[in-house]
Design a binder for these strands. Structure first.
Lengths: 345, 345
DNA sequence: CCTCCTAATGGAACCGTTTGCTTTACAAAG
DNA sequence: CTTTGTAAAGCAAACGGTTCCATTAGGAGG
C-alpha cells in the first residue's frame, strides 16, 4: 500500500539502513548510492512516516499553541490571529508544524498540555497569556518542558517570555495625551489578574504622577478586553461631574465600545473625549474616527516566540540564563481620536 | 525516564497487552484487573505515547487546516479566525487535534499537504478557500484522502464541502433593498475567479429580474474584498448621471470603503445611498452608520466542516454519495445603513 | 471423571524508522 | 604476503504500543 523505507531499499538493492542514511545525509554514503536511492524514492513517491521517525527520535518537529478560554470570546479579537500568523510563519520557516489547542478551563488546558507533551506529540508549547498563578506553567516547569510565554510573569522570573514593555507603552500613551493638553485623563483597565492590565495601569500612573496631574480613583475603571467594557466605562465617565477629557483604554476593542457609546449620545471624538488605546489591531484605523493606538508588534511577538521556543528545543543547553525575557518594541500611532488640543480649564 | 506501558505492566504484575486492553476498554478484562491497572497508571503518571499508537493504528486523531496565502489580508483575518475557532472547538470535542499550516504559494501548500498526509501526520484536511483549479484538490482526490472544502467548487461536484447558499443570500439582500422601495440598485462584486463572487452576482441578478427592475451594466462593478474597491466603486457610482440609490457589496470591507468615500463627499447614508453587504464581520455594527449585512455563520461553517471531516475519517464508507454539500443558513441583519425608504421616482 | 467451552491473560510479531556495532572489501603499509 | 586502516554498507535491536494467536484455569455438561 504505502511505500516504506524497506520497499525503497529492496528496489534499490540496498539495506533499509542505507536508505535511512541517504535520507539524513549521512557522510559515509557513496555519491553513487545516494543518487540511485534518491532516484528510486522519487520514482516510488516515498514520503517518510513521521510517526515512526518521531517514535525513535523522540522528537516531533511540532509545537503547540494553547489558547486560553477567554480567547473564545476574545477570539474575535484580531490579536490572536495576528499572533498565530507570526507563529505559524516562523515555525514553518524552521520546519515545524503548529498545533492549536484550547480548553474550556484551566483544568482542561492542563489536561491538553499534559497529553500533548507527555504523549510526545509536540516538542514545546507557546502560552498565549499570563495569568498570575497558573497550574499549566507549574506543570511545564516541573516537567522541564520547553515553553515560551507571550506576556510577562512576575511570579516566575526565570521563565522564557516574549513581551512588550507595557509600563513604558502606557507611559507613552498617557504622555501623548498630556502633551496634547489634557489634564483630566481616565483609564479603562482590563481584568486585574492579568499582568498586562497592571503594567499598563502602572505606566498610566507614572505618567500622571511625573506630570503632577491629579489622579482621581473614579477615573480608573476595571473591565475586560471587550467592547462592552468600553461602553459601560464611557457611560460611567460621561456622567461624572468632573469628567475626563481624554482616556487611555487597555485595548482597542474597549475603544470601539467607547466610540459606539459616544456616538449614540452624540458626543464628538476627539473634541468631547480623546482616546488612545493599545494593540493597534487593523480595525483601529478603520473606525470613525480612526483610533490612536500603541502598536505592540503582535505579529512580531508571535514570530519571536516561535523563534525562541524552537531554539530552546533544539539547543536546550544554549540558554545563558540571562536573556530570558525578550522585549518587542512598541510605537505610538497617532490618529484622529487624539488629535485635538482641549482648551485649558 | 518516561513511564511506558511496560513499566505499568511490570508494577501491576500483568503483561503489556493487558495494560493496553485496559486502556482501550477491551471487554474481556476483569473488573479487578482493570481497577488495579488504572490505579497504577494514575500513580505512575502514565500517558500513552501518541506516536507509538499512531504508528500501529495508522491513525493520528488530528486534522489540519490549510491557510491560503491571501489570509494575510485583513478581511481574511477576521474571517479565518472565526472559522478556526469553529473548527478547533468542534475538533476538540471529537477528540481531535488541529494542525495549522500555510504556504506562500500553491506549490508550497501542496508540499505541506503531501508531507502531512503521506507522512501520516494528520488524518484529513480542511481547505479554507475555493479557487477554480487547484492542484491541492487534485492531489487529495487522487490519493483518496479525506478532506472538506469550505466554499463551493463547481469543477468538482462530488467533493465534500460546506458552504452558504450565496445565490439566495444575495437574492435576499437585494430583495430587502427593493422592499424598502429602491429601484436603482448597484452591485460591487469581488474577483471573478472566486465562485462566491459569481454566486452573489447571480443572486442580485435574479432579484432584480424577478422584480422587473432595470439592470444597467454600469451599475455592476468588479473589485476585491477590500476597502479600496468600495472607495473606487463609490466614486464611480456617484458620478453616474442616473446613479443608484442603493447598493449591494460583496463584502463588508467594501462597504467600509464606500462609507469612507461618501463621508468625505458629505453624502449621507442611507439617505443618499443605502448599503447592504455580506459576512457581518464584528466591525459591521461598529461603523457609523452600522452596516446591514448578511450573516453567513462563519463559526458555524468551521464547526460543520470539522464535523463532516471527522465523520468521514471515522466512517469513510458511510458516505451516501448524495449529501456532499452542506449548506449553512444565512440571515440578513438589518442595520441603519439600509433603514430608509427613498421617495419613489 | 473427562471433555469442552469460555473468560481472562500472556507471548510475540509487527508498525516504519534510526543507529550502534559488525562485516566486507580493498588499498596502503610493514 | 600478512597486517592494519578506512570507507561503505548491512544486521539487528530498539522506540512504545496493538492485536492475533495461544495458554491457563475453572465451571458446566455429559
Amino acid at each position: 500500500m504505502t511505500v516504506t523505507i524497506k520497499d525503497v531499499a529492496k528496489k534499490a538493492g540496498v539495506s533499509p539502513s542505507t536508505v535511512s542514511r541517504v535520507l539524513s545525509g549521512h557522510p559515509r554514503i557513496s555519491l553513487e548510492t545516494s543518487r540511485k536511492v534518491k532516484g528510486i524514492m522519487e520514482e516510488m513517491g516515498y514520503t517518510p512516516n513521521m510517526m515512526a521517525k518521531s517514535l525513535v527520535s523522540k522528537t516531533t518537529n511540532s509545537i503547540c499553541i494553547i489558547l486560553p478560554k477567554p480567547a473564545e470570546e476574545l477570539f474575535s479579537n484580531l490579536f490572536f490571529m495576528e499572533l498565530i500568523r507570526g507563529i505559524v510563519t516562523q515555525s514553518s520557516r524552521s520546519g515545524y508544524d503548529v498545533l492549536i489547542s484550547s480548553g474550556a478551563n484551566e483544568r482542561e488546558e492542563l489536561e491538553a498540555v499534559s497529553r500533548l507533551l507527555k504523549g510526545r506529540r509536540v516538542d514545546g508549547v507557546i502560552l498565549l497569556y499570563s495569568r498570575k498563578d497558573d497550574a499549566v506553567i507549574d506543570f511545564l516547569e516541573a516537567g522541564g518542558y520547553p515553553f515560551v510565554l507571550i506576556g510577562r510573569s512576575d511570579r516566575y522570573e526565570d521563565i522564557l517570555s516574549v513581551d512588550n514593555d507595557n509600563i513604558k507603552a502606557a507611559f507613552d500613551a498617557t504622555n501623548h495625551l498630556i502633551a496634547m493638553g489634557h489634564e483630566r485623563i481616565g483609564f479603562v483597565s482590563g481584568p486585574p489578574n492579568l499582568i498586562v492590565s497592571r503594567d499598563r495601569l502602572e505606566g498610566y500612573r507614572m505618567a500622571m504622577e511625573s506630570n503632577g496631574l491629579e489622579m482621581r480613583p473614579e477615573w480608573i475603571v476595571e473591565g475586560e478586553f471587550l467592547q462592552d467594557s468600553g461602553y459601560r466605562a464611557m457611560s460611567f465617565f460621561m456622567n461624572l461631574p468632573n469628567r475626563p477629557t481624554a482616556l487611555v483604554a487597555v485595548d482597542d476593542m474597549v475603544s470601539f465600545g467607547v466610540l459606539r457609546g459616544l456616538n449614540e449620545l452624540k458626543y464628538k471624538v476627539p473634541e468631547d473625549l480623546a482616546i488612545v488605546s493599545f494593540n493597534n489591531i487593523p480595525l483601529s484605523e478603520l473606525s470613525s474616527p480612526p483610533i490612536s493606538s500603541i502598536d505592540i508588534g503582535i505579529y512580531h511577538l508571535g514570530y519571536t516566540a516561535s523563534q525562541v521556543l524552537i531554539q530552546t528545543i533544539q539547543k536546550p543547553d544554549n540558554h545563558d540564563g540571562y536573556t530570558n525575557r525578550f522585549v518587542i518594541p512598541h510605537r505610538l500611532i497617532v490618529r484622529e481620536s487624539s488629535m485635538y488640543a482641549p482648551g485649558k480649564k
